[in-house]
Computed example of a mutant assay.
Amino acid sequence: MKTLKAMRVESPLGNITLLASPQGLCGAWFAHQRHEPAESEQALWQHNAQHPLLEQAALQLQAYFAGDLDAFDLPLDLSGGTPFQQSVWQALLTVPSGQSQTYGQLAKRLHKPEAVRAVGAAVGRNPVSIIVPCHRILGADGQLTGYAGGLWRKQALLKLEGHPIALPSSDSLFPE
């Protein structure tokens, strides 16, 4: 069994739990995010605020939310997914900040144009939110659809990245 190290960090969109295995960052979940690990799994994690990889991830997230970082540079451990999920998560890493793709476009890039729903399910199960940018995947008509951390967070992340999608105006990017 892998020894997993965890750290909780604050962000403008709520607390994020980071998780590292010996191979790399394997988790980043907003508090109460859909598909976050069960409490029984979380109880096995060792919380370590001084873990070098978790510290680096926290610093990069801070720079990202400040608008100073477009792409993360962290070793990732995506081995917790099936081979298909891993291929989808790897493909997500190629969608640049400020851009997007639809679920259908992503399925075609993976040479599985008939697997749009399966691609969508894999995107939704992405264990490393923000860093593996599943928020950059939109519905067929370019609309915001599905985000395990909540659509308001997806909207805020896209707005932060300067995405050209027409987003509803608001007084503040982040809720108080």
Rank of each mutant, 00 (worst) to 15 (best):
T3S: 13
K5V: 03
V9T: 09
S11K: 01
S11P: 03
I16M: 12
T17R: 10
L19K: 01
A20F: 00
S21V: 04
S21F: 03
P22R: 05
L25E: 01
G27F: 01
G27R: 00
H35C: 05
E36C: 10
E36D: 04
A38D: 14
E39Q: 09
E41M: 10
Q42L: 15
A43D: 07
L44P: 01
N48P: 02
Q56T: 11
Q56E: 13
L59Q: 15
L59F: 04
Q60D: 06
L61R: 09
L61I: 05
L61Y: 05
L61G: 03
A63I: 02
G67M: 09
F72N: 01
L76S: 02
L76Q: 02
S79G: 15
G81I: 08
T82E: 13
F84I: 07
S87K: 15
V88P: 07
W89P: 11
L93K: 11
Q99G: 05
T102Y: 05
Y103E: 04
H111A: 13
P113R: 02
G120T: 05
A121E: 15
A122R: 07
V123L: 08
G124Y: 08
I130Q: 06
I131V: 15
V132N: 05
P133D: 04
C134R: 15
H135L: 02
L138S: 06
G139Y: 03
L144E: 09
L144Y: 10
T145F: 06
G149S: 06
W152L: 14
Q155M: 13
A156C: 13
L157W: 11
G162P: 06
P164N: 04
P164T: 02
I165L: 15
A166R: 08
L167C: 04
S172E: 14
F174H: 12
P175A: 07
